[in-house]
Design a binder for these strands. Structure first.
Lengths: 158, 158
DNA sequence: TATTGTTATACTCTATAACTATA
DNA sequence: TATAGTTATAGAGTATAACAATA
């Protein structure tokens, strides 16, 4: 076949889907980063960490944060240090394990995160307002299917 | 309404869609970066730059690369310098404008990019193989719709 | 010994702004 | 004056690895 001669063209659909998804994600992400910086003088990882804590009043351990944020432990330490210094989160003791902490939002952190989250949501809603509600749901379901399969098939290292 | 009292819950569908899309993109992107490093000792921006040049035998100017890669000019200079030093791309003169260059793949760069692109495509195909062909197309169309609207509605700065 | 978290370090990627050369 | 590209710099963001304290 001649198609194969071009080198990489047997599954161009998945590839162009990926490129579109990557571009769109970068576009939205870049805007979110800019606005977080301009309006709240913060960064996406800091916002992400606080978002992880929002629905966990008892907090999360460092390694739980590390796993959820998909970054290594040392980085979580650094981000947490910053937020602690600003009084937005705190390290609380874990009963029965003196090595670990529960990191949780302070009241001030909770208030400030609420402000940010409200704005953040409006940016995201604006980004996707080109879709009808049913299309949002379809997109959500399809991406869930991809993620599901991706998680079930760990790193085949091609 | 009580729903609104939670602070940010009027359009949670768009928000959870975004979070899923962001997570999935980061997952795939992280894997691609790791494999590019391990198998080809290169990075995603370098791969991206070469990919931009692949279908342009005459090359692209620096500012065109900058726009397509969505990064500022100084960064393109740095990445290009690396690739030139390795003999993978070259700066060619532009007739009639001695300020500008056309950056293009060398024969060696073209060969090497072919190898990388083949592998890259296999990783991407594997990432999306949980979808039926029709679903890939649906996803592609829906993301196109989002992107279209997003581009038409530049930075409302909420 | 293994685990939790911290520290130290280095590298990639990025933006900003000042700069040079040419248009 | 404006544009193409470079240089210099600073700061996110990340991973790796060695380390201390506790389990």
């Amino acid at each position: 076949m001649d198609m194969e001669a071009r080198g990489h063209s047997e599954h161009p659909e998945a590839l162009r889907l990926w490129l579109r998804m990557l571009t769109l994600t970068q576009l939205v992400e870049k805007q979110v980063r800019t606005q977080l910086r301009e309006q709240f003088d913060t960064t996406l990882p800091r916002f992400d960490l606080m978002a992880q804590l929002e629905r966990k009043p008892d907090g999360l351990k460092m390694n739980e944060l590390s796993r959820r944020m998909m970054v290594t432990g040392g980085n979580v330490t650094g981000i947490t240090d910053q937020l602690v210094a600003e009084g937005l989160v705190e390290r609380a003791l874990v009963e029965g394990d003196r090595r670990a902490y529960r990191v949780r939002l302070t009241p001030r952190g909770r208030t400030q995160f609420g402000d940010m989250a409200r704005q953040h949501e409006s940016w995201i809603v604006a980004a996707f307002e080109g879709l009808a509600p049913g299309e949002v749901e379809t997109l959500y379901q399809l991406l869930g299917k991809v993620k599901q399969h991706y998680n079930d098939t760990p790193l085949e290292t091609a």
